[in-house]
Write a protein that binds this DNA or RNA. Sequence first.
DNA 1: CGTGCTACATAACGAACGTTAGATAGGTAT
DNA 2: ATACCTATCTAACGTTCGTTATGTAGCACG
Lengths: 205, 205
Amino acid sequence: MAATVVATHERADAAERILRAAIALFRERGYHGSSMRTLARALRMEAASLYYHFASKQDILFAILDRTLDGLLDGVGRAVAAVDGPPARLRAAVRFHVLFHAHRQHEAFLSGSELRSLTQANLRLVLARRDEYERVFRGLLSVGARAGVFQVGDVRLTAMAILTMCTGVATWFSDRGRLAPESIADRYVEMILRSVTRHPKGSPS
Amino acid sequence: MAATVVATHERADAAERILRAAIALFRERGYHGSSMRTLARALRMEAASLYYHFASKQDILFAILDRTLDGLLDGVGRAVAAVDGPPARLRAAVRFHVLFHAHRQHEAFLSGSELRSLTQANLRLVLARRDEYERVFRGLLSVGARAGVFQVGDVRLTAMAILTMCTGVATWFSDRGRLAPESIADRYVEMILRSVTRHPKGSPS
DNA sequence: CGTGCTACATAACGAACGTTAGATAGGTAT
DNA sequence: ATACCTATCTAACGTTCGTTATGTAGCACG
């Protein structure tokens, strides 16, 4: 029994390995551009064997996006709960968002680009949770605006601007690039805070 | 002869109609998720007939991205040439970029999302011109920073942040949405200028 | 020692894919 | 009238697709 548990953890179990390979493959070629045979080949398996772990190709995509949204919702919740006040909370949320899109770059990319490959039922589930995630940011902006520390003309628009800007990190970030995730996060936090912070006297332009 | 010209212009010629339909289809289902038969059906043609106008499915995708990059490079060139000084030029460039991604939303979206579906040779051509486009923005930031009117920690990073933020407009903009392209552009210009403009006395946070 | 479960493999299914070959209807030019 | 050109069609090609049915090696457990 204990031996079984250890063995299971020594190398990631098959379902986990499949998801990891699928993330890389879907990222590179897209969902429809990837075949079950190609995915299997990357894992040194036969395509039919994948069906022992997942009921369908669609289920693999959904599992990826579902887990990614788990990570986003859980992460942003922890990040904002750890500090107080709108500026600190927005900083924390932006910082988390950027770091997530650098560290879990490929799955994060898929969560934006492969929504169209989901079945209608799966899309509904994913979109509901993505909306929930976006509401966190809108909430932070609203609270800050009401408190007078933020100056945002339109909360929804500003939230989309912030999120798409940070989400974009997943499209161009490189492990071997010039900038570490932490540096990128710091700069993004700075830019975003500058653009939403209320200026007591006159606008800077 | 004159009659022929008139007839040609009365309704868009076939190649044009094919590109328009392909833009909508690729946007909705992705390149690999769209078939030549589905594209033909949208045009009330048979799939084989498409090959009279384009040599391959790949050629259709390339034509779309190529024309989109024409529009971007030409447009940003005109926009920045029309005004003087780094802040006005950055405003003009950002404004153009946002408006383009709202007005030509679907093709702009494809230019970011379907690069991976291009053959290596076509990808090289497209990327070279996309780099050229990005250099325009980096140039504007550099000049402004050297002139002391902008304060940007890292030109490349700031340029990517600005571009991905504005490019994101193509992912969520809706014709029937609450905000007109002009309003979005105005707000984006404001946010971006705020985040890069040098503050003479102390930082706002 | 055998029974059953886990995790794969082999082989095959029908459907859909991008693409090509060849025919044809309708207009234009000679 | 004839020859040609443009733009489409029908039919079919070989390939690949997601998926299913079935077989089997290795291990756990009684």
